[in-house]
Design a protein around this nucleic acid. Structure first.
Lengths: 258, 258
DNA sequence: AGTTTATTCTGTGAAAAATACGCAATGGTA
DNA sequence: TACCATTGCGTATTTTTCACAGAATAAACT
């Protein structure tokens, strides 16, 4: 089955997919002050890569990104954001195939003008998710599918290290223009929790006293009368997002300038 | 000659260019409080379009964007910035060809799987230039090549109206993170001149008295001892960019928050 | 067992800095 | 001397910075 899938993809993929184009997804995972990236390890290869794939002939770019992500990792319903398109001439799927388990297929008979040997331009998407509850599943092309800390990313195939760097840059810029956290925090959360989230993503200290003021004055978060017990310390108040104002800020943009 | 070029492009372009991919450039032109966009009018057609073209097999995306721009408009050496990739499934060059002077070629014999009929994903680039000294020249595919005020852009082919809107959004966001003006103003300029530039691009009022403070405190511009004569009015002081700090801000980013 | 002390985290108010804005001063021309 | 765009000044308002008081619990002590 799986071997047939692979053969079909290699030999007939050119009829289903746009040539020269691919999509790569940088999925950031957040949990308890840690920011990670989801990487796949190809079968019989030592190098890691981003989840990626091709675009069907009659599919929007967003749909393709979403489908690829689900196929490769089992994750779905993520908010994906396009951030840059990478197209150095030397990029091609061949390099990948060389180190993957497709090797045996190539060795037998590979026409010089095969679609997978062509130069490939890749459109980059990123997303952020809470990773503690999620259990990503590798597909038939991959051995492993695991989270890697943003500070210790291994060497990746092609220009994928560059893609991760650029995605992180885009995410950090985006955070100043759109709210974040609705999908990353529990329904009710404390100020330290959302504060930690922002500090981790931006990788810098944010003043504990000023931080809530902006979000509160914009009405994006609201204070509740409840408090959370956190053991041997003063109980922090709980907050929740004001979904209407949150969505409005998401749509129209804001200037947080953290 | 020109007809031969066209025929060669239509019949053999598939051997020189990446399929399914194109580049569109939004060139903003600034002059005396006016922001315009450079548009081409195709021969024998009433609709306007952005300058665009295809990517050669062994060419970086940036080189392609730069080459396309020079070929279509005669402009060169512009700083181009990639901002988004557009790929709705219905996009194809065919729609364009239908209304262009290539019509006659299509009518005779056009194979269903011709490369120009395929779905096309377009990578968007933008730039800003001083347009008063520039005289854009249409190429052999176009009748006209003229500047259109940002507030009265005609109906464009495909999704080009959307591309212009998105480019403008990206430019306005970019302005808050990087300095602008080095290529748009004379070596020595007055505060009102650079003030007008920012107001025009952002399309909103900026306080006349506080505006210079940010640029001066960041050291990006420096006051000179000279003044400029502007007729029957008080002579404004001249300023110049501090190229080192300007380039540093360009590279590392700043937060202007206008 | 009850009380005190120590620790660690949350929460706010007051001072400083930056920004907004009205208004007056400047300088060049007619 | 009237005009007008540019410039500078002074005060009101907002935003940012910063330090200490308060709360909750565990451990130590009597």
């Amino acid at each position: 089955m799986r071997q047939n899938d692979t053969l079909d993809f290699v030999h007939h993929g050119d009829k289903y997919f746009l040539h020269h184009l691919s999509i790569d997804c940088v999925i950031f995972g957040y949990h308890e002050r840690q920011l990670k990236v989801l990487l796949l390890k190809w079968k019989n290869a030592e190098k890691w890569s981003l989840p990626g794939g091709f675009i069907k002939l009659e599919e929007t770019l967003e749909d393709a990104a979403s489908r690829i992500l689900t196929e490769r990792t089992g994750l779905s319903q993520l908010f994906l954001q396009q951030f840059h398109t990478f197209g150095e001439p030397k990029r091609s799927v061949r390099t990948a195939a060389d180190i993957a388990h497709l090797e045996s297929i190539w060795k037998t008979d590979v026409p010089k003008e095969h679609w997978l040997l062509k130069r490939t331009v890749s459109i980059g998407y990123y997303s952020v998710t809470e990773y503690s509850q999620v259990n990503p599943q590798p597909d038939y092309l991959s051995d492993e599918c695991t989270w890697h800390d943003i500070h210790s990313i291994p060497q990746l195939v092609f220009d994928h290290n560059l893609i991760v760097t650029e995605a992180l840059k885009a995410l950090r810029m985006q955070i100043n223009l759109q709210p974040i956290g609705y999908n990353l925090l529990p329904k009710k959360f404390t100020l330290p929790e959302i504060h930690d989230l922002y500090e981790t993503i931006l990788d810098k200290k944010l003043d504990r006293r000023n931080f809530p003021k902006k979000l509160l004055s914009l009405g994006i978060i609201k204070k509740l009368d409840e408090q959370k017990s956190i053991g041997a310390h003063r109980s922090p108040f709980l907050y929740k997002f004001d979904k209407r104002k949150y969505d409005k800020a998401l749509k129209e943009g804001i200037v947080l300038a953290f």
